[in-house]
Write a protein that binds this DNA or RNA. Sequence first.
DNA 1: AGTCTAAACGGACTTTACCCCGCTTATATT
DNA 2: AATATAAGCGGGGTAAAGTCCGTTTAGACT
Lengths: 212, 212
Amino acid sequence: MQLGKPRAERADARRNRLRLLEVAREMMAEHGTANVTMDSLAERAGLGKGTVFRRFGTRAGIFKALLDEEAHRFQEQVISGPPPLGPGAGPVERLIAYGRVRIEFLIANLAVAQAAMERDIRAPAVEVDMTQMHLRMLLGQADLDVPDLDILATQLSAALEGPLLLYLASAPPVETLDAEPARRLADGWQTLVERLFGIDAPRGTEGDAPQR
Amino acid sequence: MQLGKPRAERADARRNRLRLLEVAREMMAEHGTANVTMDSLAERAGLGKGTVFRRFGTRAGIFKALLDEEAHRFQEQVISGPPPLGPGAGPVERLIAYGRVRIEFLIANLAVAQAAMERDIRAPAVEVDMTQMHLRMLLGQADLDVPDLDILATQLSAALEGPLLLYLASAPPVETLDAEPARRLADGWQTLVERLFGIDAPRGTEGDAPQR
DNA sequence: AGTCTAAACGGACTTTACCCCGCTTATATT
DNA sequence: AATATAAGCGGGGTAAAGTCCGTTTAGACT
């Protein structure tokens, strides 16, 4: 079948892509995601509108790209960082850790994450795939007596990301978010996972939760 | 603080609202949700575009309204129908039943549900409130040793609705969906809830699931 | 029946994402 | 260096959502 190599990104293309991301960040910093329109972005970057679309395909694509840059660091931690997030800890512990950090990450980048979903819900959206695959892997490692692990992974990833991206992100186009809902969500996630695995609330004795 | 009654809907307003919904249904039946544009809808209904927006506020609003009509029947079943969906059964049983029926409902109306979310994620979306509140209530009735029931309800409703509305609804703007994912999702939901409540899989004896 | 007013109506206007396609250019090959 | 060509570029064009505001009308009250 042999499909030839993707023929590396051309130098000008790369330059423009980076410039556009840079300018997008600037514009966001100034007036939030809302005012980053394709026209204004192109103009301010000194490029044609067509170029913007060629580079990112869609408006949401820009924010996805922005998010990916961040997500990449995070992903490295997960793959080869120290436990409990990285390998080394038990799967349940890693599940919990993953969720907590992911929630933190999403909250820190809420505006971008929202913008990355806006319009066309469909499409893998915000790195959901990554979460789903990782959960699936950890669920496989923990030996859980559940018939359909794929579905469970899907449901859990929805439980993890959904509240932030959908429910919690209501009303005004959120730009920032304080720490309390973050803690509630993270604790909720932990409880959910623990109960799923039949761990009955390590409450009281353990000095488990000053958590910050 | 007496805020006067909302001053019932005017006759012409009601007539036009119903007509628009009717026409929208027709157009959907012919070419799917995609071709229901505000302009064409208005024109075909013989009304001005302004009227359409006045009645529904936004494109998604039309589909929400369409969904509500259906959801209303469903809601009645939940509130005063026979168990296990309606009152009379235990809370865990009702949780499971609710999820199963809700999944069925969403799959049956997937295209509309998707359209009801498209653009501006924010806003309570697709009757999520109803699901969330109902789950919250049932969780309260089951005495579950969990600190934050609100969060749990949110997470569960995401786990219930999310997969359908987001992940599963990928690729081509879905118009219909076959029965298999429905069963997997429903079974997955049941398993999830059972494990949450520490019920260890009523497998084997019960004629519950030839599972394919 | 006549009057009044909040509500509804209509459609031109604005904004924005996204498409198209002729022109330009980086880069591999000779 | 010259050439070929796939990739990139630009910006005018289209479609669709959503806004505005002057005009019309239902229906309450007299």
